[in-house]
Design a protein around this nucleic acid. Structure first.
Lengths: 204, 204, 204, 204
DNA sequence: ATTTAATCGAGACGGTACGTCATGTCTTCGG
DNA sequence: CCGAAGACATGACGTACCGTCTCGATTAAAT
């Protein structure tokens, strides 16, 4: 299913099939592909619509006809690769796998780093923030499903709210990713999950 | 203790020679005060060095002599108010108070919202990121102290690492603050802390 | 014939491709008109590109797209009025009329004083100096034609080089104009021409 | 005898020997020497008071105490070398020698090229223009004396005004020097003088 | 076959901010 | 009082990116 439908100006519910020249698939693809290529060299802030237009051969006019701004383009271009939905059979295994999957994505897939820029844009552009939350919500869903599956296996303490768990799990990731005070590695994933599973106060 | 010492270009360890016209306290204060005033109306991205210069009556030349860019100014101007260090006597009380203190700070103190902008700048400016980590590290210290105090009171399960706890606690905050999918209120603080204390898997 | 073609960045010999938004005649005219207006109040050195942009409503970006600097703008704006080409029938009459025409131009037409600024810029900017020489060369042509016409009427002593005559005639003008030690009036024009015609040594 | 006394702010008629630290000869000499050194590498417009202060070790405050601006410094620094006063025994010889002397001065003595800058400053700074005219007037005197000497030898046609001759002779120089359309060489000097002596119309 | 209309490329445009530079003044300390 | 050091306000510089606009040329579905 396609992402970024709100800021992306077209994709009308009814294709309508009105008269006139149809949208060029070539231009659409070229913009996204060029954006991805540029993002494997440049950071989000170094990227510019001017540059995308120049490299892709698609005019700025056309770009702005279909995307409202740089953020919308990058949203569609850089969030194509999915984080795998883990299903290891245990809550611990799933959560660790989820985090490690996220870490690997940003570590190995250069354009995925553009998520930094998208988060930044979302801070000051309410319309884009809405879109961004939609994308983040879909990724968040992976965690919620893991927790709900765990509950069905009676691996969850009564009263635990999946939403809070998601905030804690993804929070740990965002925190280190954005602040950069410590690495995003498997050890971190395991420490986070173990701390979260057992809690921090003594019991029993 | 003073903040923002790295990107702030001067503040030499040794005042060294007393020769030369001394730095104008008026100009220094005017820049910071104007920045705070502007930030109670504008968002970080709407703020500009040009505007700060114009409103404060301090020349751009002088501003750039002492701060390397907008981020450095805002860092010094907007991070003056301290988050209170809670000491309620219990781990739960301290952590909830810490989070609520943070939430209140950004909710009631308009310029504190500029932390969004600072985090954004830190994403693409390594030098500033270092400074930003310094500031965040000092705030993070509050959490670490709470956890260490709790350990001394035997309120902490053996093997729990304070650093991981801090990542989880602040992560929950950053996550909701930056994504904005749900409110930052007392209920959230309590849910986060309770989940964290007891853990999410059943025990006993 | 149009002036200022070199530093003026566009005016391609071939309009070439018709693609793209055509150059705005409004913007072009507004820049030149505003420059002329400003030059009737300000001296060349008081003029700034910022000011031209502000008053004309043309963005600096656009100005710099078409002119390389202030000198190029003023060259095009302030050299529009032509010095009349005299043809009185005698060498003396023509030369006096030429000089008086030049004197009147700078005396009555305030923006024409900007020629001072253009000459200054030409001193340190080789590219602009080339353009400036082109413009000066076209004015110089007037004198050369006068001398050549006089030669045809046998009003010229054998061996006299028109180029040297031009250097002497215009030199007298530049000297007083730039140094300002004495006025540029008809009396001066006549004295210069009479001295030049008869020479300064006794003959016969 | 020293030049540039008007814009040069000190040199009071009465040294007065008032209280306080006396003016530093070292500072005075260092400014002029540094200016000359810089002018053998840089053009007038590339020179700055900041730079002179930095290289000479004299503070800007001190520089501005004694000179009103860059032009005044350069006036004093770069006009130290005198144009030789020729006395060959003939009018032709003197005038050619005068011009060749001027040409040689700017050709071989790099800082002498700064005269370009001084002339430019004089265009827009009336106070400096006055000073500049003083300096130019002293150089002009050389020509006037040549002409007057020639008159005493009956080498001058009756009615020829020395001032006009000076305007023509120096004008020819300034014209080529400032516009740069042709070289300043001995051939040019001779052509100018010969044309001037014999006039351009046929006689006898 | 001919309209019709939305698309496309190219690229100029106004706007706003950037960070740097030179000028001439001012403010301290020490000689 | 002078000199060195150097901070200061002013105001211009030329560049960059943004998002909008104006062209002539394409391209198909609807006539």
């Amino acid at each position: 299913m396609s992402r970024a439908e709100a800021t992306n100006r077209a994709n009308p519910a009814t294709p309508a099939t009105t008269a006139g020249r149809p949208r060029s698939k070539r231009a659409h693809a070229a913009v996204l592909e060029t954006t991805r290529e540029l993002l494997s060299t440049l950071t989000y802030d170094q990227l510019s619509v001017d540059r995308i237009a120049a490299e892709s051969g698609v005019s700025k006019r056309t770009i702005y006809r279909w995307w409202s701004n740089k953020a919308a383009i990058v949203m569609e271009a850089a969030t194509a690769t999915d984080i795998p939905a883990p299903d290891t059979g245990t809550l611990r295994g799933d959560l660790v796998a989820l985090l490690v999957g996220i870490f690997d994505n940003v570590a190995t897939h250069r354009p995925a780093q553009a998520i930094r820029g998208l988060l930044c844009e979302a801070q000051f552009d309410p319309a884009f923030a809405e879109d961004f939350r939609g994308y983040i919500g879909r990724r968040r869903q992976l965690c919620l499903e893991i927790v709900i599956r765990a509950a069905a296996r009676h691996e969850l303490r009564a009263g635990v709210q999946p939403e809070i768990v998601a905030d804690l799990v993804y929070g740990a990731y965002w925190n280190r990713f954005l602040i950069g005070h410590a690495p995003l590695d498997r050890a971190f994933a395991e420490q986070v999950v173990d701390t979260l599973l057992a809690g921090i106060e003594p019991h029993g």
